[in-house]
């Protein structure tokens, strides 16, 4: 009778131990699995970086004497620039944007999504990481007005995603 009671007590002790251990483990898992909240300064840095990148990159002079902004407008809408040296404005624009992104955001290890759109159609897209599930602050968006009386906008947007 005494042996049976002792076995019961041991069993209860074991159950309590397992329960405590499980609760502890659950707490650790929840604590570790929760993604760290991004601070305001992080958000600010990402947004400023994206806006400054767009503004500086659009004013960058390309190898054929036009700025990136002028080439974007021409390739998508105006079609006035016939050739850029030995090649086309579209090729120069593509190479220039790739080079700028590689020289900066890619080198710094940022995940990004740089898109140039006109009337719901994507003309250029450069992406590094930035999967759909990745958190990101607001995208920097720069409209480029084109056309005269019936002005429309080309939109250049840059999203930087949290790693």
């Amino acid at each position: 009778m005494k042996t049976k009671r002792s076995a019961q007590v041991e069993l209860v002790g074991l159950v309590i131990f397992v329960l405590l251990f499980a609760v502890g483990l659950l707490f650790v898992v929840i604590n570790r699995a929760t993604p760290p909240a991004h601070s305001f300064s992080d958000e600010y840095v990402y947004e400023e970086l994206a806006f400054n990148f767009i503004l500086a990159s659009l004013k960058h002079d390309t190898s054929c004497g036009y700025t990136v902004e002028e080439l974007v407008k021409d390739v998508i809408y105006n079609h006035n620039i016939g050739a850029c040296g030995d090649t086309t404005p579209a090729v120069v624009l593509n190479e220039t944007l790739s080079d700028l992104l590689n020289f900066s955001l890619r080198t710094w290890g940022y995940d990004y999504e740089y898109v140039i759109m006109f009337q719901d159609q994507e003309y250029f897209r450069y992406q590094q990481g930035c999967a759909a599930y990745q958190e990101r602050p607001s995208a920097a968006l720069q409209p480029l007005p084109i056309g005269g009386v019936n002005a429309k906008n080309i939109f250049v947007s840059l999203s930087l995603c949290y790693a």
Partner: peptide, 13 residues
């Protein structure tokens, strides 16, 4: 901080 570097003599940014 991305910036535009202005080269006055060469007249390019």
């Amino acid at each position: 901080v991305p910036v535009l570097v202005r080269y006055p003599n060469e007249r390019i940014d």
